[in-house]
Amino acid sequence: MNIFRFAGDMTHLISILVLLLKVYATKSCSGISLKTQELYGIVFLARYLDLFTDFISVYNTVMKLVFIGSSLAIVWCMRFHRVVKRSYDRDVDTFRHYFLVGGCFLLALFVHEKFSFREVFWAFSIYLEAVAILPQLILLQRSGNVDNLTGQYVLFLGAYRGFYILNWIYRYFTEDQFSRWISCVSGLVQTALYADFFYYYFISWKNNAKLKLPA
C-alpha cells in the first residue's frame, strides 16, 4: 500500500467521522442527503460480499466492516432516531436515487471484468459509488447555505477520491500489469463531480466567508 492510497482511506474515514460527529453532537441531520447515505450503504454491501470469501489483510477487513457499519448506522439514525429524523430535509431531498441503482446495475451486467455474481456486484458498486454523491450535492445546492460540518464532510469525501487517483498513477508506474480501467474511469467521473464543490469551497475559504453554493 502506498502513501496516496492510505491518505485516501484516511480522508474517507475522516469524512465518515465528521458525519457521525455532526449527527451525534448536533442531533441533527439537516443538509445531509438520506438518498446518498442509502446509496453508500448499498455500495458497501455489494462490494464487500468478498468479506466471507477472500481475505486480503486485517486492515482491509476492518475498514470494510467500518464502512458497512457506519453507513447503515447513519441511514438508521436519519430514518428512525426519534430526534435526528425530525431535522431531515425531506422536501428538498427528492432525487430519484433508485434510477441510479437500476442504471448502474444494468451497466454492470454489460460492463464487467468477468461474468460472475461477485464481479458483477463489484462493478455495480464501483459505478454506483461514482454517482452516489449526486443527491447530496443537489441537496446542498438547493438549500444554498452549507453548515461547516456538512461542508467538511463533502470536502473530505472529495479528497478521498483525489488521493485514489494519485494512488492509481503511482501504481501504474510502480507495478507490472496494473490495469483496472473500470475503477479508474469511474473514479475520474466521481472526482469530476466534486470539481464544482471544490471550487466554491476554495472561494469561501479564501474570502473567509461561509460556504454558499449558487442556485
Partner: peptide, 10 residues
C-alpha cells in the same frame, strides 16, 4: 485476468 486479488482496494 489475475483473479479476485485484483480488488485489493477498498
Amino acid at each position: 485476468y489475475s483473479g479476485y486479488r485484483a480488488h485489493d482496494e477498498l
